[in-house]
Write a protein that binds this DNA or RNA. Sequence first.
DNA 1: CGTTTACCATACGCTAGAGTATGGTAAAGC
DNA 2: GCTTTACCATACTCTAGCGTATGGTAAACG
Lengths: 192, 192
Amino acid sequence: MKTNVKRERTTLSAADWERAALESIAEQGVQALAVEPLARRMGITKGSFYWHFPSRECLLEQALQRWEEHDSRNLSKSLGEIHQPRDRLTSFFRRVVREKLTHEVYSELCSAAGHPQVAPVLERVAERRMEHLSAAFEELGMEPATARNRARMTYSVYLGFLQLQRQHQTPHLSSQEFDAYIEHVIDTLIPA
Amino acid sequence: MKTNVKRERTTLSAADWERAALESIAEQGVQALAVEPLARRMGITKGSFYWHFPSRECLLEQALQRWEEHDSRNLSKSLGEIHQPRDRLTSFFRRVVREKLTHEVYSELCSAAGHPQVAPVLERVAERRMEHLSAAFEELGMEPATARNRARMTYSVYLGFLQLQRQHQTPHLSSQEFDAYIEHVIDTLIPA
DNA sequence: CGTTTACCATACGCTAGAGTATGGTAAAGC
DNA sequence: GCTTTACCATACTCTAGCGTATGGTAAACG
């Protein structure tokens, strides 16, 4: 147990700042990531920050990279070991509920798709994920082109879900309505 | 033809500012809407702005209201007169291509879903649209609950499409790939 | 034990944008 | 023709955040 930010008089590292940055992004978005507020939040001053990083931009860069790596590993781990393509696809949707922080960050990144540092990350992540989906649909017997379209569509459903979540227009998570919706989505997207 | 912003030495109105605000939002998002840059863009100074509006907040409020009304009328007009529910649904997707400004604004609003003034607008708009979709699916013979789920899912596909568009990850519009994708989506979502 | 190094605090300067105050001007009204 | 009104310019103040400069301190090192 690392008791995160709490006063352990051990000194801070760059990684600590990156983690804090991701937390801040998850809560308030990329735009709101600022070094002075972040420092305040950590009970410290800018002086520390500019020792570890040359600029705000670099912090963002590092934090994004850290997030992307984590997400990438996570994707392979949680989908790579499921053999049934159908289960793999359902598992894909269930992931929204678990891995809370990771997905909150992703949601905020989507809101900042126009940002020059965020854009390439989003492209790579979406591409990777759609590849997984596409492969699964092919395993279920679809033509490559069809599988690719279905993958894009499936991923769109996921992205749209995140958007509706941001708008608080999704039936409250882990309720019956939510489960019914997921089931409906799966039945519609995945061939029996 | 109104030759928009070009030097017509007639004086500006609040509506002009609202229109300019929406253009700015379409291009740079809600966050970037600032009165000084906007004034510069219109070849004028703040002095004018603060005569028409008490604050930046009020400009945003008015602009959003104007947009929502426009969108609402537009929805009824473009979907209300199509009798075949299937055609109505396909028309729904085609709208993304036409009505460029309106949809660019919407896309940016989605990116600002967390903003207190934007949130209620998004909620109402999404609700209205999903109502239309839901009704169409019911007309196609679905149970109300099923139709609602399908509507949510359909709208999610649309929202996800907007997101991928923002990420430049959608097959270039008006290409064959795009048409093939739309067709695939429609075949998957709409019962024969 | 003195010095270096790693980390942090304090105090700056700088910029962009929000509002405010006030004055100028051209056209409309009396 | 003189005044009012509507609209715009200029010149402030104020705030928040970026980045810098510089100095302090505690622990590691030689």
